[in-house]
Design a protein around this nucleic acid. Structure first.
Lengths: 367, 367
DNA sequence: ATGAAAGCGCTAACAC
DNA sequence: GTGTTAGCGCTTTCAT
């Protein structure tokens, strides 16, 4: 628990800030008039309004946000916290997905007049208690996330994924995980793959559980055995190891046919596409000749490998935008009815998942 | 832990917040007493203090931050903006260096009781005007950065790199760029390299200009021709292209000897190490056999390539910590004398820059 | 059309 | 020890 010493120390450089009353005195008008002029409220003669504005500008007047907020009763501050990564609370920005989600959240919020405060993953009350946040965005909460519980208990509106659906004070937007998995698997099937294997983290976020379920359903629907390897955690190390397991056939399989080498790999975990590609090569697979590869990733390096890697984008920007728009609607117009939104994913098909017409498009493992 | 009574099945209409005065009335005490009890200020009998605290907890009292801030005159809010990337204002988080710098800045600030607000790169007044930030951290400003000018003109304390040294209201911490370059070049020289080439972005940040200068100085001191390629911008594309230029010998060189193939490559631009390694291979270089490779990077994938890539870490966490500590000292104790700090870098030697004893690609333990 | 004054919730002098 | 009170700077009735 981080206890902040209560308000010791003075803002020692007592730079004389220009206040509304200073502008008023200078302009020979009243506080009210200046305020109205600056905010465009009230009925003022154009000359007076102009004079007020000009004086304020000349004096370098900048309204005091704290006073405004106190008056308005709202802080225009939104917290941002991710549910995963609770054991390494600040690592989430190293994931391209969260980096972009975070950036897009901040961008959209700022555009709507809200500042975003970065919180450590899994942070509880002590971290945000004295911040008076108008709401908190909880990205990818884990199952029964204490962060969500804590926030809701403190009556702070929570914006999160579909796992909070139905809870009072909670609103959601979510990625269409099921559609994503089906789309990716359909794609490799169209390209001729019959033995796809999936790598997905062993995490309790709604996204990952849904991916897992959608994969099982898809396999059942296509009469294909379920081949899945759960990665021990986020980060390249565990995911690469899982990829190795997936490709070396240590999978439980019911028949000899099922034990055949996989012909497609879907990695639903943030790992560096170049590293995944390297791993497939080390294990003797040519991509896309022997193995079609699709990574769920926002990592831009995917375009630069040889062959370029097909990625499934979760479209963090779209999620953030839809989310913040909804949240602002709730905050400002009390749209408590705000229905959740499901954001479709986008498959960026590149050479790694396209069965080559000629062998030259295939990166061969080193001999 | 949750200090708030559970929902009593109340629908969730905007429930009036519990104020200090409410707690006071409930406890049969005065606002002052409650405030003092909660803040640990003033002289109260232990029983009264405990009663006040208990009542506040029971009622789910949460202090209003806006009111506190208004009273305190400080918002406990720090802005964070990066100078580079102004043309893609939200892309900076995709750089591992800035991702970690940002995270560490937020972490350290929060620990000291300050919330960090993310601002778009290159943002001017309109973005932060009505935020009343106590200070703004400007990471890697470009030369004569308008962001810095704007902030200083608005009398907002600026925390940045050494390029702001001497300006009133500006404070700094910086990475020891010169030492970093010398360290890396000395290292490859010790490993036997005689024709190192450097790739550095064509940017006006202090870091990059200093890298450029330090490289020239080092070359002069060692009687080695200056081989440098400036990358067109950040991002993997331009940097990889620059690497290709560097390795295909399109360098201006004065003598035939100078045109010989380089035997070491120092990439001082955030590019994905696996991609850089791939590029060297495509051009027919064996690493470390033909070419020693060092990347200035915080990218964790460097450990996972084959061979692992030697990296020079700028130690963003150390920078953020030193920076925020200094900034807080300035803000809270008015240490206007606060001398800037130079943070040393760290070379993580891996196989890519260690000349193999035998002609094989054996990685050696880091020294 | 303009101004005076109340008050947002909190903290800290200053009484008692 | 504890309570009363005066603001922090702003917006907003409500008079004029």
């Amino acid at each position: 628990m981080t206890d902040v010493p209560p308000h010791r120390g003075q803002p020692s450089p007592p730079l004389p800030r220009v206040r509304l009353v200073d502008v008023a005195r200078e302009a020979g008008l009243s506080k009210t008039t200046i305020s109205a002029a600056l905010n465009g409220t009230g009925r003022l003669s154009p000359e007076v309004r102009e004079k007020a504005r000009e004086t304020a500008r000349r004096m370098g007047y900048r309204p005091n946000a704290a006073a405004r907020r106190l008056r308005a009763g709202r802080a225009r501050l939104i917290g941002y916290v991710v549910g995963e990564f609770a054991d390494a609370p600040w690592n989430f920005l190293e994931s391209p997905y969260f980096a972009r989600l975070t950036a897009a959240t901040a961008a959209t919020s700022l555009r709507r007049g809200y500042a975003v405060v970065l919180l450590p993953a899994g942070s509880l009350q002590s971290e945000w208690a004295d911040l008076s946040l108008d709401a908190v965005v909880v990205a990818d909460p884990v199952a029964d996330d204490p962060v969500v519980e804590d926030l809701l208990a403190a009556r702070i509106p929570v914006f999160s994924d579909r796992s909070v659906e139905g809870r009072p004070g909670a609103y959601w937007v979510d990625v269409d995980a099921g559609g994503a998995v089906r789309g990716a698997l359909d794609h490799v099937r169209e390209q001729g793959a019959r033995r796809p294997v999936v790598v997905v983290p062993d995490s309790t976020t709604r996204f990952h559980t849904e991916v897992f379920a959608a994969h099982e359903a898809w396999c059942a629907a296509h009469g294909v055995p379920v081949r899945v390897v759960r990665a021990g955690g986020p980060g390249n190390g565990p995911v690469i190891r899982a990829v190795e397991t997936a490709l070396t056939g240590d999978l439980a399989a019911d028949s000899a046919a099922d034990r055949a080498r996989p012909d497609a790999l879907l990695v639903v975990a943030e790992a560096s596409p170049p590293l995944v590609l390297d791993a497939t090569r080390r294990l003797g697979y040519g991509v896309p000749g022997d193995l079609l590869l699709v990574c769920v990733s926002e990592d831009v390096t995917a375009e630069h490998t040889q062959p370029p890697v097909t990625t499934l984008s979760l479209r963090p920007e779209a999620i953030a935008e839809a989310g913040i728009e909804t949240l602002v609607a709730v905050l400002e117009h009390g749209d408590r009815e705000a229905a959740g939104v499901l954001v479709p994913t986008r498959l960026d098909v590149r050479a790694s998942s396209v069965r080559p017409a000629q062998a030259e498009y295939t990166s061969r493992p080193p001999t």
